[in-house]
Write a protein that binds this DNA or RNA. Structure first.
Lengths: 146, 146
DNA sequence: GTACCTGCAAACTATTTGCAATTGT
DNA sequence: ACAATTGCAAATAGTTTGCAGGTAC
Protein backbone atom coordinates (compact mmCIF):
# COMPACT_ATOMS: atom_id res chain seq x y z
CA UNK A 1 0.00 0.00 0.00
CA UNK A 2 1.61 3.16 1.15
CA UNK A 3 4.69 1.27 2.27
CA UNK A 4 7.91 2.86 1.09
CA UNK A 5 10.96 0.67 0.78
CA UNK A 6 13.86 1.88 2.89
CA UNK A 7 15.93 4.66 1.39
CA UNK A 8 13.41 5.21 -1.35
CA UNK A 9 13.61 8.87 -0.40
CA UNK A 10 17.30 8.88 -1.13
CA UNK A 11 16.74 7.12 -4.41
CA UNK A 12 13.98 9.47 -5.42
CA UNK A 13 16.11 12.50 -4.67
CA UNK A 14 18.99 11.14 -6.67
CA UNK A 15 16.70 10.24 -9.53
CA UNK A 16 15.88 13.89 -9.70
CA UNK A 17 19.53 14.54 -10.46
CA UNK A 18 20.24 16.11 -7.10
CA UNK A 19 23.75 15.65 -5.84
CA UNK A 20 23.60 15.07 -2.13
CA UNK A 21 26.44 15.72 0.24
CA UNK A 22 27.26 13.19 2.92
CA UNK A 23 25.47 14.92 5.81
CA UNK A 24 22.33 15.26 3.76
CA UNK A 25 22.46 11.63 2.71
CA UNK A 26 22.82 10.60 6.32
CA UNK A 27 19.90 12.78 7.38
CA UNK A 28 17.76 11.30 4.64
CA UNK A 29 18.62 7.80 5.75
CA UNK A 30 17.62 8.68 9.28
CA UNK A 31 14.35 10.13 7.99
CA UNK A 32 13.67 6.88 6.18
CA UNK A 33 14.19 4.98 9.39
CA UNK A 34 11.52 7.03 11.13
CA UNK A 35 8.65 5.61 9.13
CA UNK A 36 6.15 7.48 7.03
CA UNK A 37 5.54 10.40 9.35
CA UNK A 38 7.61 12.26 11.90
CA UNK A 39 7.81 15.59 13.64
CA UNK A 40 10.78 17.92 13.48
CA UNK A 41 11.45 17.20 17.12
CA UNK A 42 11.67 13.46 16.54
CA UNK A 43 14.01 13.92 13.64
CA UNK A 44 16.24 16.37 15.48
CA UNK A 45 16.49 13.96 18.38
CA UNK A 46 17.27 11.01 16.13
CA UNK A 47 19.95 12.95 14.30
CA UNK A 48 21.46 14.22 17.54
CA UNK A 49 21.65 10.65 18.78
CA UNK A 50 22.90 8.95 15.65
CA UNK A 51 25.03 11.74 14.18
CA UNK A 52 25.92 14.13 16.95
CA UNK A 53 28.22 16.15 14.72
CA UNK A 54 25.44 17.17 12.35
CA UNK A 55 23.96 20.52 13.29
CA UNK A 56 20.33 21.48 13.51
CA UNK A 57 20.63 23.92 10.66
CA UNK A 58 21.61 21.17 8.26
CA UNK A 59 18.62 19.13 9.33
CA UNK A 60 16.28 22.02 8.64
CA UNK A 61 17.98 22.76 5.34
CA UNK A 62 17.57 19.16 4.29
CA UNK A 63 13.91 19.15 5.25
CA UNK A 64 13.43 22.29 3.22
CA UNK A 65 15.20 20.71 0.27
CA UNK A 66 13.07 17.57 0.38
CA UNK A 67 9.97 19.67 0.69
CA UNK A 68 10.99 21.78 -2.28
CA UNK A 69 11.59 18.60 -4.25
CA UNK A 70 8.07 17.48 -3.32
CA UNK A 71 9.43 14.42 -1.59
CA UNK A 72 8.15 15.42 1.80
CA UNK A 73 4.79 16.82 2.75
CA UNK A 74 4.25 19.23 5.60
CA UNK A 75 1.15 19.01 7.77
CA UNK A 76 0.34 21.46 10.53
CA UNK A 77 -1.04 19.73 13.56
CA UNK A 78 -3.57 21.42 15.82
CA UNK A 79 -0.93 21.85 18.48
CA UNK A 80 1.21 23.86 16.08
CA UNK A 81 3.79 21.19 15.50
CA UNK A 82 4.80 20.28 12.01
CA UNK A 83 4.39 16.73 10.81
CA UNK A 84 6.38 15.59 7.81
CA UNK A 85 5.02 12.78 5.72
CA UNK A 86 6.92 10.82 3.11
CA UNK A 87 5.18 9.36 0.16
CA UNK A 88 3.22 11.19 -2.44
CA UNK A 89 2.99 14.89 -1.73
CA UNK A 90 2.33 15.59 -5.39
CA UNK A 91 -0.83 13.51 -5.66
CA UNK A 92 -3.94 15.00 -4.14
CA UNK A 93 -4.88 12.99 -1.09
CA UNK A 94 -6.09 13.18 2.47
CA UNK A 95 -4.99 11.71 5.78
CA UNK A 96 -5.99 9.48 8.60
CA UNK A 97 -3.91 10.75 11.51
CA UNK A 98 -3.65 8.62 14.62
CA UNK A 99 -3.95 10.60 17.84
CA UNK A 100 -2.22 7.76 19.63
CA UNK A 101 0.98 6.94 17.80
CA UNK A 102 1.04 9.69 15.21
CA UNK A 103 0.90 7.31 12.29
CA UNK A 104 -0.40 8.87 9.11
CA UNK A 105 -2.22 6.91 6.45
CA UNK A 106 -2.93 8.49 3.08
CA UNK A 107 -6.26 8.32 1.30
CA UNK A 108 -6.62 8.76 -2.42
CA UNK A 109 -9.65 9.43 -4.55
CA UNK A 110 -11.01 12.13 -2.32
CA UNK A 111 -14.43 12.50 -3.90
CA UNK A 112 -14.94 15.92 -2.35
CA UNK A 113 -14.83 17.91 -5.56
CA UNK A 114 -18.61 18.03 -5.85
CA UNK A 115 -19.03 19.22 -2.29
CA UNK A 116 -16.29 21.81 -2.67
CA UNK A 117 -17.84 23.04 -5.91
CA UNK A 118 -21.33 23.21 -4.42
CA UNK A 119 -20.26 25.13 -1.34
CA UNK A 120 -18.02 27.46 -3.29
CA UNK A 121 -20.70 28.27 -5.84
CA UNK A 122 -23.19 28.93 -3.10
CA UNK A 123 -20.83 31.47 -1.51
CA UNK A 124 -19.43 33.10 -4.63
CA UNK A 125 -16.08 31.65 -3.71
CA UNK A 126 -13.45 30.42 -6.16
CA UNK A 127 -11.93 27.33 -4.59
CA UNK A 128 -8.22 26.78 -5.11
CA UNK A 129 -7.69 23.84 -2.82
CA UNK A 130 -8.91 22.08 0.25
CA UNK A 131 -7.75 20.01 3.17
CA UNK A 132 -9.51 17.07 4.71
CA UNK A 133 -7.93 15.14 7.53
CA UNK A 134 -9.46 12.56 9.82
CA UNK A 135 -8.16 12.26 13.37
CA UNK A 136 -8.71 9.24 15.54
CA UNK A 137 -7.13 5.99 16.66
CA UNK A 138 -5.55 3.44 14.40
CA UNK A 139 -6.25 -0.26 14.88
CA UNK A 140 -3.13 -0.84 16.97
CA UNK A 141 -3.80 2.09 19.29
CA UNK A 142 -7.39 0.95 19.78
CA UNK A 143 -6.05 -2.35 21.09
CA UNK A 144 -3.50 -0.66 23.35
CA UNK A 145 -6.20 1.56 24.76
CA UNK A 146 -7.92 -1.13 26.80
CA UNK B 1 -25.61 35.15 8.17
CA UNK B 2 -22.48 34.70 10.17
CA UNK B 3 -22.50 38.39 11.08
CA UNK B 4 -21.89 38.96 14.77
CA UNK B 5 -23.13 42.19 16.26
CA UNK B 6 -20.36 44.31 17.76
CA UNK B 7 -19.26 43.33 21.25
CA UNK B 8 -21.23 40.15 21.13
CA UNK B 9 -18.05 38.46 22.28
CA UNK B 10 -18.04 40.59 25.39
CA UNK B 11 -21.69 39.89 26.00
CA UNK B 12 -21.22 36.16 25.52
CA UNK B 13 -18.33 36.08 27.93
CA UNK B 14 -20.27 37.96 30.57
CA UNK B 15 -23.29 35.76 30.05
CA UNK B 16 -21.07 32.92 31.08
CA UNK B 17 -20.64 34.63 34.42
CA UNK B 18 -17.02 35.56 33.79
CA UNK B 19 -15.88 38.72 35.49
CA UNK B 20 -13.62 40.57 33.12
CA UNK B 21 -11.03 43.09 34.18
CA UNK B 22 -10.67 46.31 32.25
CA UNK B 23 -7.71 45.30 30.11
CA UNK B 24 -9.43 42.13 29.06
CA UNK B 25 -12.62 43.99 28.22
CA UNK B 26 -10.65 46.41 26.10
CA UNK B 27 -8.85 43.59 24.29
CA UNK B 28 -12.14 41.87 23.60
CA UNK B 29 -13.57 45.07 22.16
CA UNK B 30 -10.59 45.39 19.88
CA UNK B 31 -11.01 41.78 18.82
CA UNK B 32 -14.62 42.51 17.93
CA UNK B 33 -13.51 45.40 15.76
CA UNK B 34 -11.26 43.13 13.73
CA UNK B 35 -14.08 41.19 12.12
CA UNK B 36 -14.72 37.48 12.23
CA UNK B 37 -11.15 36.30 11.75
CA UNK B 38 -7.74 37.65 12.67
CA UNK B 39 -4.21 36.51 13.26
CA UNK B 40 -2.32 36.99 16.50
CA UNK B 41 -0.07 39.44 14.72
CA UNK B 42 -2.98 41.62 13.60
CA UNK B 43 -4.43 41.66 17.09
CA UNK B 44 -1.11 42.45 18.76
CA UNK B 45 -0.61 45.33 16.35
CA UNK B 46 -4.11 46.68 16.90
CA UNK B 47 -3.73 46.52 20.65
CA UNK B 48 -0.30 48.13 20.54
CA UNK B 49 -1.79 50.97 18.51
CA UNK B 50 -5.02 51.47 20.43
CA UNK B 51 -3.87 50.56 23.93
CA UNK B 52 -0.12 50.90 24.08
CA UNK B 53 -0.02 50.24 27.80
CA UNK B 54 -1.46 46.76 27.48
CA UNK B 55 1.26 44.14 27.25
CA UNK B 56 1.54 41.22 24.88
CA UNK B 57 1.16 38.70 27.67
CA UNK B 58 -2.28 39.99 28.56
CA UNK B 59 -3.34 39.71 24.94
CA UNK B 60 -2.24 36.09 24.83
CA UNK B 61 -3.86 35.37 28.17
CA UNK B 62 -7.13 36.84 26.93
CA UNK B 63 -6.99 34.81 23.74
CA UNK B 64 -6.42 31.71 25.81
CA UNK B 65 -9.36 32.59 28.02
CA UNK B 66 -11.70 33.13 25.09
CA UNK B 67 -10.54 29.92 23.55
CA UNK B 68 -11.12 28.04 26.80
CA UNK B 69 -14.61 29.55 26.94
CA UNK B 70 -15.21 28.26 23.42
CA UNK B 71 -15.81 31.77 22.19
CA UNK B 72 -12.86 31.77 19.84
CA UNK B 73 -11.72 29.08 17.48
CA UNK B 74 -8.11 28.48 16.58
CA UNK B 75 -7.13 27.46 13.06
CA UNK B 76 -3.60 26.63 12.03
CA UNK B 77 -2.76 28.04 8.64
CA UNK B 78 -0.34 26.29 6.30
CA UNK B 79 2.26 28.94 6.96
CA UNK B 80 2.15 28.13 10.65
CA UNK B 81 0.33 31.27 11.71
CA UNK B 82 -2.66 30.97 13.95
CA UNK B 83 -5.99 32.33 12.81
CA UNK B 84 -8.65 33.04 15.40
CA UNK B 85 -12.26 32.95 14.34
CA UNK B 86 -15.18 34.30 16.29
CA UNK B 87 -18.59 32.77 16.02
CA UNK B 88 -19.51 29.22 16.79
CA UNK B 89 -16.53 27.12 17.79
CA UNK B 90 -18.80 24.71 19.59
CA UNK B 91 -20.87 23.73 16.57
CA UNK B 92 -19.24 21.37 14.11
CA UNK B 93 -18.51 23.26 10.93
CA UNK B 94 -15.97 23.85 8.21
CA UNK B 95 -14.39 26.89 6.58
CA UNK B 96 -13.99 28.78 3.37
CA UNK B 97 -10.73 30.63 3.86
CA UNK B 98 -9.86 33.42 1.46
CA UNK B 99 -6.25 33.40 0.33
CA UNK B 100 -6.60 37.05 -0.57
CA UNK B 101 -8.02 38.92 2.38
CA UNK B 102 -8.05 36.19 4.99
CA UNK B 103 -11.79 36.30 5.48
CA UNK B 104 -13.24 33.12 6.91
CA UNK B 105 -16.75 31.96 6.20
CA UNK B 106 -18.21 29.07 8.16
CA UNK B 107 -20.12 26.19 6.65
CA UNK B 108 -22.56 24.10 8.59
CA UNK B 109 -24.09 20.74 7.84
CA UNK B 110 -20.90 19.12 6.76
CA UNK B 111 -22.29 15.91 5.34
CA UNK B 112 -18.93 14.19 5.56
CA UNK B 113 -19.90 11.69 8.21
CA UNK B 114 -20.60 8.95 5.67
CA UNK B 115 -17.26 9.47 3.95
CA UNK B 116 -15.41 9.57 7.24
CA UNK B 117 -17.15 6.42 8.38
CA UNK B 118 -16.48 4.60 5.14
CA UNK B 119 -12.80 5.47 5.05
CA UNK B 120 -12.31 4.73 8.72
CA UNK B 121 -14.00 1.36 8.50
CA UNK B 122 -11.93 0.45 5.49
CA UNK B 123 -8.71 1.15 7.42
CA UNK B 124 -9.69 -0.21 10.81
CA UNK B 125 -9.51 3.31 12.15
CA UNK B 126 -11.72 4.78 14.84
CA UNK B 127 -12.45 8.35 13.79
CA UNK B 128 -12.67 10.94 16.53
CA UNK B 129 -12.89 14.07 14.44
CA UNK B 130 -12.02 15.62 11.13
CA UNK B 131 -11.11 18.89 9.51
CA UNK B 132 -12.23 20.16 6.15
CA UNK B 133 -11.25 23.59 4.95
CA UNK B 134 -11.55 25.09 1.51
CA UNK B 135 -8.99 27.65 0.42
CA UNK B 136 -9.53 30.05 -2.47
CA UNK B 137 -10.66 33.55 -3.29
CA UNK B 138 -13.78 35.20 -2.00
CA UNK B 139 -16.01 37.16 -4.35
CA UNK B 140 -14.45 40.51 -3.46
CA UNK B 141 -10.90 39.28 -3.95
CA UNK B 142 -11.83 37.76 -7.29
CA UNK B 143 -12.89 41.21 -8.45
CA UNK B 144 -9.75 42.88 -7.10
CA UNK B 145 -7.63 40.34 -8.86
CA UNK B 146 -8.22 41.69 -12.35
C1' DG C 1 39.99 26.85 -7.80
C1' DT C 2 35.30 27.37 -7.71
C1' DA C 3 31.00 26.41 -6.04
C1' DC C 4 28.57 24.20 -2.79
C1' DC C 5 28.09 22.40 2.06
C1' DT C 6 28.90 22.49 6.96
C1' DG C 7 28.63 23.47 11.98
C1' DC C 8 28.35 26.97 15.09
C1' DA C 9 26.59 30.79 17.27
C1' DA C 10 23.66 34.43 17.02
C1' DA C 11 19.30 36.19 15.39
C1' DC C 12 14.48 35.85 14.95
C1' DT C 13 9.52 34.88 15.67
C1' DA C 14 5.91 33.48 18.42
C1' DT C 15 4.47 32.45 22.81
C1' DT C 16 4.79 31.62 27.93
C1' DT C 17 6.09 32.42 32.60
C1' DG C 18 7.92 34.53 37.09
C1' DC C 19 7.13 38.23 39.69
C1' DA C 20 6.46 42.47 42.05
C1' DA C 21 3.26 46.10 41.63
C1' DT C 22 -1.56 47.27 40.89
C1' DT C 23 -6.39 46.82 40.88
C1' DG C 24 -10.93 45.31 42.24
C1' DT C 25 -14.07 44.17 45.82
C1' DA D 1 -7.15 42.71 53.57
C1' DC D 2 -7.47 39.40 49.89
C1' DA D 3 -7.48 37.42 45.63
C1' DA D 4 -7.19 38.18 40.86
C1' DT D 5 -4.93 40.77 37.16
C1' DT D 6 -1.34 43.46 35.09
C1' DG D 7 3.03 44.92 32.55
C1' DC D 8 7.52 43.94 32.20
C1' DA D 9 11.43 41.38 31.34
C1' DA D 10 13.32 37.13 30.93
C1' DA D 11 12.63 32.46 29.41
C1' DT D 12 11.38 29.07 26.08
C1' DA D 13 10.55 26.75 21.65
C1' DG D 14 11.18 26.32 17.03
C1' DT D 15 13.42 27.84 13.05
C1' DT D 16 16.54 30.74 10.12
C1' DT D 17 20.67 33.15 8.88
C1' DG D 18 25.59 34.94 8.63
C1' DC D 19 29.81 33.37 8.25
C1' DA D 20 34.47 31.32 8.37
C1' DG D 21 36.15 27.10 7.41
C1' DG D 22 35.75 22.55 4.94
C1' DT D 23 34.61 19.39 0.92
C1' DA D 24 34.06 17.77 -3.65
C1' DC D 25 35.06 17.67 -8.06
Amino acid sequence: MSTESPDSLLRQAEERGIKLATSRRRIIQIISSLGTAFTTGKLLAAVARQEPTIGRATVFRTLQLLHDLHLLERIRLDNGRVLYVTGHPHRHHHHLICNGCGEVRSLFGCGLEALVAAWSAQQGFRAQGHTFDIYGLCAACQRDEK
